[in-house]
Design a protein around this nucleic acid. Sequence first.
DNA 1: CGACCATTTGATATGGATCAAGCGATGTGG
DNA 2: CCACATCGCTTGATCCATATCAAATGGTCG
Lengths: 230, 230
Amino acid sequence: MLMRTAIQSTSSRGAATLRGRNGLPVGPHACGSALDLMGAPMPFARNVEIFGENEPAEYLYKVVSGAVRTYRVLNDGRRQVGAFILPGDMFGLEAGETHAVSAEAITDSIILVIKRSAIVALAERDAEVARQLWALTAQELARAQNHMLLLVRNAQERIASFLLEMAARTPASTSVELPMSRQDIADYLGLTIETVSRTLTQLEEQAAIALPASRRVVLRNRLALSRLNA
Amino acid sequence: MLMRTAIQSTSSRGAATLRGRNGLPVGPHACGSALDLMGAPMPFARNVEIFGENEPAEYLYKVVSGAVRTYRVLNDGRRQVGAFILPGDMFGLEAGETHAVSAEAITDSIILVIKRSAIVALAERDAEVARQLWALTAQELARAQNHMLLLVRNAQERIASFLLEMAARTPASTSVELPMSRQDIADYLGLTIETVSRTLTQLEEQAAIALPASRRVVLRNRLALSRLNA
DNA sequence: CGACCATTTGATATGGATCAAGCGATGTGG
DNA sequence: CCACATCGCTTGATCCATATCAAATGGTCG
């Protein structure tokens, strides 16, 4: 029992239900998959739960705008953030009947909500769709495996990897706007907020990054960061 | 850069190739899946590589007897063991074209080797097979997610979880024979061998376990171990 | 028996957690 | 519009769990 993370998320569970949505299709970042062709855009407010661990997995989701975190909570109250989900990314797909993690909106977000049963039924007849479902889960597995590697490194390496990952996922990749709090980052990297903060200032002192604002990071020396990366 | 694991594995790469196998079917632990119906049993000697990271994923595998570890190596030489694979378990299944991890036999093992292309082709026509491929990858994902949680706990908790996991996967679950070395366990849990050893002796002093031999663990107080578990 | 290897045990060092305080931005009520 | 509460972040001081370095022990095989 190490640090005890204060989880202040205002998970007003009810707000995440699916009532009142008007069926309408097509998200941006359309990537030519059957998975994009159905589903309704829904708004989720900051810190609102999208689904909870162990809840039936009736839908899968695609972020249109905003950002989402998935996480699990340990019995001692600590939270492990499994992934940050950015526009264009899908999440919440399960092969089983229930969600393995919880998901919350990090900022106010628009999220495409897609009925799982429709997709699964489609996969029954269309091998290409089935292959895509598999590929999506495999990709998630690859992410999880990389994340495992992160968690055994030192603080600088974890932060550097995190920043490079975020940069790679951002259009203007040299300056990154972080949608998540220090606590989110800490729970993602298995560190404390203090260590995250300190490490960021260290990297700034080493001129590897600049911090014009607490949630804006400019990558000044990619090479230095990469050397810290796996 | 923390500990620097000595990787002494005698990965005599050549020995793992697939030449000279006689096609023959059916492993024990048969679980009524199409995946079991094809494939040839092959012996692998202790510490021999079965496949390497980034190699083309031409086969998938099922352990008949023995034990296998999957792992990745960080740029600084440390090794992260991703999973221990015991008789009845499958491994090496990839949705993509290459292996995401390396795999080695921990002890002399018999492993069923199944052509991936055959299965994938079958899945093309049989939705049930496709579903099973997906389910297998999803199960692996769940394992990886649980493993992530392990890596942020303290040493006692990690060891306790590891022992309970091994016990749950062993027929005679109150006494566990560990096929892997302390180094393997350390690399699985993100600890050093010294910490693994010390923690095991602590648990023994607390009467939670007994260690009649270094690789045999008797679970004496499951409840105490469970309390340490997530 | 002796060499080798895996494991345990001991002494010390250190990176990150913890405890505590300060600071800047944002928002709220008077 | 300002005073003040709140929140997220940073910074400082200290502590502790685990790494590191080192040596002893024990089991296995030739």
